[in-house]
Design a protein around this nucleic acid. Structure first.
Length: 569
RNA sequence: AGGGGCGUAGCUCAGUGGUAGAGCAGCGGCCUUUUAAGCCGAAGGUCGUGGGUUCGAUCCCCACCGCCCCUACCA
């Protein structure tokens, strides 16, 4: 415990720390204890800040218990959630409600309170909607009203009563019976602005979900996206599987893995960087259509588009090539946008994106198409295909760029024509790919897991999906020649580097030797897809608990320890 | 990793080289149809941490910690 609170909340923390020894108690005002003292006489209350409000609410909870209420009841039978009540009765007239006298039992969290002496209003929140309640002394009686006066914003309560409309015509529950379900010992964030501190929003996402506009919708939409993806593949005869996240070799992509350790086996394992090689083993095993939606882990940088753990859909289908996936990708994404957003034209930042108009471009075509006119005549496809052609184009581009027009691209002599084509694409075309685009025919040098085009071994049958400037998906005609695969693996290992496996995955080669049918496979980044469909511009907005640096220093400080000066670099 | 920005009450934010301010939340009081309810009163702060300059630092300088943004690698 203890990794989740901002340092300010930990000031004065004196619960047991990880080592099990009780931590020195800091000076605290005397207050009623809910939890007992331990055998050392240390106070085991949980003194979080704001301390005065925490203690105040503990006191109220005791008073509520003294009134005969169970402070932590086990359940509450409700007839509808606040959202359901609003949905069902939101348009019913006051007169109709008066004659019908609709009885409801509703549970929710108090988000606002307005007390008026011997009566009061509150809003309770449930399933993303607010519903007003009205509590009156002469309706709930003296004991019920005492309880009401001991409630705070943030408390979870249950109410029973009938629906009516106030003078201002707001649908409201006329509360006849009030029950505390859980007392909040800490207050909610400020009610106008909610949580503005981005760090606090991520660290205390539960509060963010309660008080920040739209956050709940992002994650319900994310769930909907995943659900629709499953529906799509399930309806087409794909089997959903779960392959190992802990792997003896981290293959299937070029990325630095995380390392973990299994004690009993006494071996190091890698957290997977891709599902690819296991899913293709399943193709060998006769699962001709197979998909997996789950986490990959890459020990690399963090940015608005990268989180160390991220969610990927990967799917494979036998007896197909990447051209089949072009059609499938369009169908999948266009249908998904229609279902999730209710339209095929969406906004992403300043862009209007139209899923009715897909573009298909080869990488060379994309370069020709988006070549800056100011940099002279665009190279032709034949020029880019010719030996030395990409280098000539890069040199022309850089000559123009160095005039202060753009960032010149790398052009070291060791780069192959294929690599230079890739660099040129990234410099010239990639930022321009806003409308849904299928980019295909990558240089073979950039695509070690892909089959080559039969008519041109310099080109790989590879496809990427670009939308809104985001790289959303990546697909191949999968390499299934075990000898060629082993050759490429050995080349990789020889090349070395942290982002390359240390040895050849011979188990995978053996699987290929049992014959993997010709197949096409594709990966789609779920986080980025969610960004696109929720108009979010940081991956952290679509991940509930993005990775943040733990607050090790302040934790140690609040536990009464000085950080080791040797660590202070 | 490099560049830029931010860190002041529990939350949202002002502010100044001379010992700190508002709103919300909380506390006490009034208020039986409110809507950011209102009115009255009192309380709440090692101004991120550590150094330095200064008679004096929350403010200026340096280092560190954390977060955000941009760039680079990556999906």
């Amino acid at each position: 415990m203890g990794g989740f609170l901002p340092s300010r909340l930990r000031e004065g923390a004196h619960y047991t720390r990880a080592g099990g020894r009780p931590v020195e108690s800091l000076t605290l005002p005397v207050a009623p204890a809910i939890l007992p003292h331990d055998s050392f006489g240390k106070d085991l209350r949980l003194p979080f800040e704001p301390l005065d409000q925490f203690l105040q609410r503990q006191k109220k909870l005791e008073q509520i218990a003294a009134l005969g209420h169970d402070p932590y009841p086990h359940k509450f039978d409700y007839t509808a959630t606040p959202a359901e009540v609003v949905e069902k009765y939101g348009t019913r007239t006051a007169a109709k409600l008066d004659t019908e006298r609709v009885l409801v039992r509703v549970a929710g969290r108090i988000l606002t309170m307005r007390l008026h002496g011997k009566a009061g209003f509150a809003h309770i929140h449930g399933q993303g909607k607010r519903l007003q309640i009205y509590v009156k002394l002469d309706v709930v009686g003296e004991p019920g009203f005492q309880l009401f006066q001991l409630l705070d914003m943030g408390d979870v309560i249950g109410v029973a009563g009938h629906l009516f409309r106030t003078k201002t015509n707001e649908l409201t529950i006329w509360v006849e019976q009030l029950t505390l379900l859980t007392k909040a010992l800490l207050p909610l964030p400020e009610k106008w602005h909610g949580l503005a501190d981005v760090e606090l929003r991520y660290r205390q996402r539960y509060l963010d979900l309660l008080v920040s506009e739209g956050v709940r919708e992002i994650f319900t939409r994310r769930a909907q996206i995943v659900r629709e993806l499953r529906n799509f593949f399930d309806a087409r005869g794909y089997i959903e599987v779960e392959t190992p996240m802990m792997q003896p070799l981290a293959g299937g992509a070029t990325a630095r893995p995380f390392i973990t350790h299994h004690n009993t086996l006494d071996i190091n394992l890698y957290l997977r960087i891709a599902t690819e090689l296991y899913l293709k083993r399943l193709l060998v095993g006769g699962l001709d259509r197979v998909y997996e939606i789950n986490r990959n882990f890459r020990n690399e940088g963090i940015s608005t588009q990268h989180n160390p753990e991220f969610t990927m859909l990967e799917f494979y289908q036998a007896y197909s090539d990447y051209r089949d996936l072009m059609d499938l990708s369009e169908e999948l994404l266009t249908g998904l946008v229609q279902q999730v957003c209710g339209t095929t034209q969406i906004h992403y930042g300043e862009h209007e994106i139209d899923f009715r108009r897909w573009e298909r471009l080869s990488m060379r075509e994309a370069i020709c198409r988006h070549w800056p006119t100011a940099a002279g005549a665009a190279p032709t496809g034949q020029q880019l295909a010719a030996a030395g052609g990409p280098r000539a184009a890069v040199e022309r581009y850089n000559a123009w760029a160095r005039g202060g027009h753009a960032e010149p691209t790398a052009s070291a002599a060791k780069f192959s024509d294929g690599e230079l084509t890739g660099l040129l694409f990234e410099a010239v075309a990639e930022p321009k790919l806003i409308q849904p685009t299928l980019l295909y025919d990558y240089p073979t040098d950039l695509s070690p897991l892909s089959k080559c085009r039969p008519d041109d071994p310099l080109l790989a049958e590879r496809l990427e999906i670009f939308i809104g400037g985001l790289e959303l998906g990546n697909a191949f005609s999968e390499l299934n020649d075990p000898a060629e695969q082993e050759r490429r693996f050995r080349e990789q290992v020889a090349h070395g580097g942290e982002e390359v496996p240390k040895e050849v995955d011979m188990d995978y080669i053996r699987a290929l030797c049992h014959a993997m049918p010709p197949a096409a496979g594709e990966g789609i980044g779920i986080d980025r897809l969610t960004m696109l469909l929720t108009d979010s511009h940081s991956i952290r907005e679509v991940i509930l608990f993005p990775l943040l640096r733990p607050e090790a220093r302040s934790l140690a400080a609040s536990a009464g320890e000085r950080p080791d000066p040797g660590d202070a670099k």
